[in-house]
Design a protein around this nucleic acid. Structure first.
Lengths: 262, 262
DNA sequence: CAGGGTTATGCTCAACATTAGAAATACTCA
DNA sequence: TGAGTATTTCTAATGTTGAGCATAACCCTG
């Protein structure tokens, strides 16, 4: 049944465990590699953007891909993802602390990486707050925030288009029952800014009055700072009150997408 | 930064891709393995059970573990999980078709497997319908359905206790928004049987009348077969109508856990 | 075979949540 | 200064949920 296990790990079932370890011969195995790839989302100019890097090395040299890299021997998966996040975004530690990072899904279809090495990738999803400057890439690689619309006309390296789609889908769902929309805005934000996150990620307009009431009614979602914006909106309107995240991670009840309710 | 990538894959950035492939030397890499492990849940005697196997080989020989095995070179992850599911449960194809299988999470902490090989495991979650007989294990391994209560007093091999906990947690959440409770019952079922799935997985009693109304009101959750059970419940009551799954995968609105609503 | 306990199904009513619309107010820009 | 816009609050209509109860069908015991 299980070729590898039967023929190699379990050559001799009666062998003692310590003794068995000595007979292990790594070179007998087909080579396998594990990487982490990151879907790092942010909102810029009222559009959802993802961080992409232009590959400086083969395979897919010159093509755009999700940032990522091999998991190091002494690293746990989440550590590896956090390290890549830090390296690739160039965010300062204080911003980095506010980034949400979760494991998304693992991809391992044979042939998804053209190298003569079976590469599995553990995809992670990250929500980054608005970053003022375009990101500085590491080394020779070029990195850029791309709008999701732009990525639809691009061919991404590997199976990264599928990974990206999976990440966006997860993000849309997460907004409903978690307070993760606050990860897309600064430490202090207005209710309108928060609403804008939902509108951009979901791609639909929300009723400002209802959204306001809803956010205020969910216990622990936001708390008042007592301050307001310095000025009204760009095209008018009063100054908005500033809020910070209230500590709740789950939303009860959830903030449902209008288009899915019907 | 990325040791493996820099020192090995990217020795020469200017090299042509075809040429580069020839210089690749698998033996330069630290050995890595990828397995799939399965959290297969079912309901027996009004309790949630998980399928465990007694390991016949080191490491952890003689201890109980989640079923699983190495991903074969030509297999995608989902295929590997489906194969293990088939091998380990001994379910017939017709039952197998009704089993729900989804990727759960990937675990890769260094040292989680004592072998001199970095083992990553992609955990899958499966919901099996009631199976009449205890499961026949493959080969020399012993396999058994264990109640969740029983597993809490056992030490499972590797980090399988954590994987199991993650799977149960996911299962609890899935019932809320999806119609997956139907994967735990037979092709035709009564509303009470369906309610029992929720009660067992969530570990709390539900209001029969409200549950009934809710299930009937969600479009596409269940559809009538026109038939009823042959007799009433064991301790009395009228015959119940039989339903089958109505095709909906998402529940709108969701069927929320009472204990989480408060 | 009568009657008590049990269950499936459906109904009601109060509490709560959501939608759509609008009002009051405070600001920007021309 | 006036037109347009945004924030915040309110209201009325509608939809959903929680808890209790009612009815009828059924099993089991005596």
């Amino acid at each position: 049944m299980l070729n590898i296990r039967n023929t190699q790990f379990e050559k001799d079932g009666a062998m003692e465990e310590a003794e068995w370890l000595n007979t292990y011969e790594p070179r007998d195995y087909p080579p396998v590699g594990v990487t982490v790839d990151l879907v790092i989302l942010t909102i810029r100019d009222k559009e959802l953007h993802v961080l992409l890097v232009e590959r400086g090395e083969p395979p897919f040299k010159g093509e755009w891909a999700l940032p990522g890299g091999f998991v190091q021997p002494d690293e746990d998966l989440h550590e590896a993802a956090a390290r890549e996040l830090k390296e690739e975004t160039g965010l300062r530690q204080t911003d980095l602390d506010r980034v949400y990072l979760e494991q998304l899904k693992t991809f391992g279809k044979p042939g998804r990486d053209p190298r003569p090495l079976r590469v599995f990738t553990v995809a992670y999803l990250a929500f980054a707050p608005q970053v003022p400057e375009p990101v500085a890439g590491t080394d020779a690689e070029n990195a850029a925030w791309m709008s999701l619309a732009a990525t639809r006309n691009m061919k991404l390296a590997f199976d990264h288009a599928a990974i990206l789609a999976e990440g966006v889908e997860r993000a849309r769902n997460k907004l409903e029952y978690s307070s993760l929309a606050t990860s897309f805005v600064g430490p202090e934000f207005t209710i309108s800014e928060l609403r804008n996150v939902y509108e951009v990620v979901w791609g639909e307009q929300l009723h400002p009055g209802n959204f306001h009431r809803k956010v205020m009614s969910v216990d622990g979602y936001v708390e008042e700072t007592g301050r307001t914006t310095e000025r009204g909106g760009e095209r008018g309107g009063p100054r908005a009150r500033l809020y910070r995240w209230g500590g709740a991670t789950q939303l009860h009840p959830a903030l449902l997408r209008p288009s899915e309710t019907t």
